[in-house]
Write a protein that binds this DNA or RNA. Structure first.
Lengths: 336, 336
DNA sequence: TCGATCCATTTGATCGTTCCAACGAACGTA
DNA sequence: TACGTTCGTTGGAACGATCAAATGGATCGA
């Protein structure tokens, strides 16, 4: 059916091993031979049989990722984007991505063990890591390479590779942008105790403190538009000139409050989901492309970590958008 | 490292081939031998090396699916759910799922060709099929097994396997449910020309016609909450007692109109995304589990097709929800 | 001249499975 | 007794690549 190493070797008048070298370690074959071999490869449309290679080397060059069940929506979109970014960039590194499902953390570990043992995948990405994540210890103990997307909120575990988004830097940037439109920047977030949520609130506090302003307009509700709407109404009544939110879901609720109050106040969400694009409010883009790149970089090698800086995606909707950036730092400026 | 066929054979006192038979075609080995072999398998924790098997049989038992770039959000969530369902059910059939990305249809076909030739995946699922889809002819011609998620809206192509959701049945069910709360059921959909959109509008028209009511409250806008809100306001002004929408995005806009008008009117969306769950409006669930099952069923075999019936996910929010179902009949009861 | 070193290439073995042809034993039939 | 079938099992070859060791020439210093 398809051409094999031996076919190419015959055509180029060399041995199989030389063809193999030409493909895997070109620098050790003579330039003239290399050229001849490559010509034969092109002519025959040869592509190495990966099963044979994997059998021999017992490595798969494949990354395993669990697909989560996402009843909530927004979280799912993010993971989906992340998966897309990882897959796209993995292809550039000549790696494939195998997906699997699992009902809980233990089932996931079992799956990973199985996939790893059969060398169907030789490195894994853990998503949605939480407090005292069982998976981390299990994989570390089994010696299976992995990178976690999400920082370890406890520091009891053995050191492992992780990548996370610097939520604090994100809300700080959003708050700074909002400050340009008025001093009373409010924050609408989640109750204390969620690592990511606390970081996001911290960024707002930092920015307000640096500006010498009080961080008093602060509300905490569950990630639900109805609750957010009620809380946002209070913030507006208290004189908020803009609202920085811990998620697009909360921002959606805040915009509901704006609509009812007929107010015109910038709202900034977090995650830059389709909701933000649809309604036209600004949102903090987690920069998942950079996260994916960092994950791939850390997949092989000593434990290390990376903190990716998100960036504010400005949208200029007249009701709840942000005005164009004034300072001509990097990109184009417009009338203000 | 891991146990091999030869190890099991030695332990059970039989030849490699017998072990292979015990695993792949148990019926041809003697019951007593089978039991002895299986005991050895368990004891050694033997699992076949899939690379070796795939090399020998040149089949991968793996399904390839392209991950789409989804800037729009809602579409992405659906495909993500679908992917999850396929992966989960594929595992039950001892199959794996490999994902890949591609910038356009041609690139996707090229990728599929490559994956297929190297037998990294031996069957594929096409999503987001559109009018005169180039991919279908290309794959059919290349003899690569595939199933399309989405019916062929033109009938010019060669017959191929496809699975689709019966959108018409979905909006019909939604309309019937809405009729229980008032006669003036409106439809908020997309402009004519999109196959899926036309089907959804058709379901509403059918239900209204069966009930002997005029289908006059009908608006068509792009899939954008702002436009939807304006159109929904018109429908409310014209006396709509409920609004069936072609998507959750449109329903989101409709609810915005409700909020401003302080009206209390059932709204039904389509796709049952997180937005519907978050705001608490009813929505039509595409039943992607059933779609996935159908896809897997059709992946190997003669060209065939399946039309999956979606189901209405009722939510009883007081402002825009639906009352609990009155008739305890199973479902699919025609009004007349 | 001889031997050591290096470079480019080749040869044979191997990864773990399934395919293929052959095998002996048990059985029925002539 | 002899012969063809069927059943359960077996050993060797093959899938297509990489690994490890060996080969034959150049090149170079002693």
């Amino acid at each position: 059916m398809s051409a094999t190493l031996a076919d190419v070797a015959a055509k180029a008048g060399v041995s199989r091993q030389t063809v193999s070298n030409a493909i895997n370690t070109p620098r050790i074959v003579h330039p003239a031979t290399l050229q001849r071999v490559m010509a034969a490869v092109d002519e025959l449309g040869y592509a190495p049989n990966l099963h044979a290679r994997r059998l021999r080397t017992s490595s798969a060059r494949t990354i395993g990722i669990r697909l989560e069940r996402h009843d909530d929506g927004i979280h799912g979109v993010l993971l989906d984007r992340f998966l897309h970014a990882v897959t796209e960039q993995a292809a550039g590194l000549d790696r494939h991505v195998l997906v699997f499902t699992a009902d809980d953390a233990d089932a996931e570990v079992a799956q990973i063990r199985s996939l790893s043992q059969r060398s169907l995948a030789d490195a894994f990405v853990l998503t949605s890591t939480d407090h005292r994540d069982r998976r981390i210890d299990a994989l570390a103990e089994a010696g299976i390479p992995f990178v976690a997307f999400g920082r370890p909120w406890d520091d009891g575990s053995a050191p492992h590779s992780w990548v996370d988004v610097d939520g604090r830097a994100g809300t700080r940037e959003a708050t700074d942008a909002c400050l340009a439109t008025g001093e009373r920047v409010a924050f609408l977030g989640w109750p204390d105790g969620s690592g990511a949520g606390d970081e996001r609130r911290g960024g707002w506090r930092d920015a307000m403190a640096d500006a010498g302003l009080p961080a008093d307009l602060d509300r905490a509700v569950e990630d639900d538009p109805a609750q957010a709407q009620a809380a946002a109404a209070e913030l507006l009544a208290a004189g908020a000139t803009s609202i920085v939110c811990a998620s697009d879901t909360l921002a959606l609720g805040a915009i509901g409050a704006l609509s009812r109050a007929d107010a015109s106040v910038p709202v900034v969400g977090f995650d830059d989901t389709g909701v933000a694009a649809g309604l036209g409010f600004s949102s903090i883009d987690q920069n998942l492309g950079a996260v994916a790149a960092a994950v791939l970089e850390l997949l092989h090698g000593e434990p290390a970590h990376r903190l990716v800086t998100p960036r504010l995606h400005r949208r200029a909707n007249p009701r709840w958008g942000l005005p164009a950036q004034q300072s001509a730092a990097a990109d184009g400026k417009d009338a203000s």
